[in-house]
Design a binder for these strands. Structure first.
Lengths: 197, 197
DNA sequence: TGCGTTCCGGAGAGGTTCTCCGTTTGGTGG
DNA sequence: CCACCAAACGGAGAACCTCTCCGGAACGCA
């Protein structure tokens, strides 16, 4: 799972100054996004990283590319966590724990992760979307097979709901609300469906 | 519940041209927001309404003021609906129906209503926020007293959850997803809490 | 060291939000 | 009917943003 994408023939390696700039941009972006949220000025990122705007846009053609790069590490960690949890004893607990972790991720930096998930599937954004969705699908499938998760429930729906919680509570003052909301959703997850009328 | 706010001594009535412009701005904004979503250009609104940007900003000091004005009618309708439902036979059904209507509202025009609810409580935005929250609180209280809604659940949480659904599905291609998600939430609403561990 | 390729930087086009203030206009008292 | 003034208009423009383009600098291989 290296950076280069699949079977690109014979890419000459990046020049070192380019690599350095790229890294510095990601680090700076992390800072700036942390301060100003997902709408932060990309100009500001470039300025603080000590490069021109052109350089930023060459490395990251659009906002979500930069967002993705910033979140990449966290997303991979989340996928690894899914892998680990996948072989835990209780499939229900595994799903629960992962969703809690995912909610934390989606809420980080004023809803950075959530914002990325909602954006239309542009370029790189799609990678992460898929990765996380697959992780969720795996855990959910197990919880449905070996645990008590209800059968009528797709990973997509579950993830979307958690993303929703992240977005709507991004600026909430009540620090415990996100957790309460997720708990409610989980409460419905581990039940057989009600059939009203 | 007129437009003027409380006990302002002796406001001279607005000049007719001002009132006309205000109305035209709201109507135009409705169109423009419908086309371009809640991020639409306010300049564009002013241009199409045939007024200068200055005029727009005098009537509506910021985006959410304009948003609020546009949604005001819909919000009042929603409050009236709450009033009506409030005296219906089944408190549970009343709450369910209202939340469904609220979700529709929050999703209208690419998440206009939801966007307004999440914005920091600036000026007028707060009015609507309160109005809707009160309506929800009333219906929820009834459903808890006379219906089967669980006791550990606040109107704020419930509303926040629905707003979350609206936001995360604002650009969804699956037209039925919002409904599915709300159904899941309602499913948890009408149960006694699970207590795991 | 030389040279082609890669990469940088910043000027600048075109957009946005929002302000400021000279000018116009509505409506009222004379 | 007119004159006057507060109220309202409108658009120039400051400050910011995104994103592009391309001349020139920098890298790294031979």
């Amino acid at each position: 799972m290296t950076t280069t994408h699949g079977h690109v023939p014979a890419r000459r390696p990046r020049r070192t100054d380019a690599r350095l700039n790229r890294e510095r941009l990601i680090a700076t972006a992390q800072e700036v996004f942390a301060e100003a949220g997902p709408e932060a000025s990309l100009n500001e990122v470039a300025r603080r990283a000590g490069v021109g705007p052109g350089t930023l846009y060459r490395h990251f053609p659009n906002r979500s590319a930069l967002l993705t790069a910033v979140l990449r590490g966290r997303i991979e960690t989340l996928c690894e966590l899914a892998e680990t949890l996948s072989s835990s004893e209780s499939a229900d607990d595994a799903l629960t724990q992962w969703l809690r972790a995912f909610l934390v991720h989606a809420r980080v930096n004023q809803g950075l992760g959530g914002a990325l998930m909602v954006e239309e599937p542009v370029a790189l954004g799609l990678d992460c979307h898929r990765l996380l969705l697959d992780a969720a699908a795996d855990l959910l499938a197990q919880a449905q097979r070996r645990g008590t998760a209800r059968a009528d429930l797709t990973a997509d729906d579950l993830v979307q709901l958690v993303v929703g919680i992240a977005l709507s509570t991004a600026r909430s003052h009540d620090a415990e609300q996100p957790d309460r909301l997720l708990t409610l959703v989980l409460d419905a997850t581990y039940r057989t469906p009600l059939q009203n009328e």
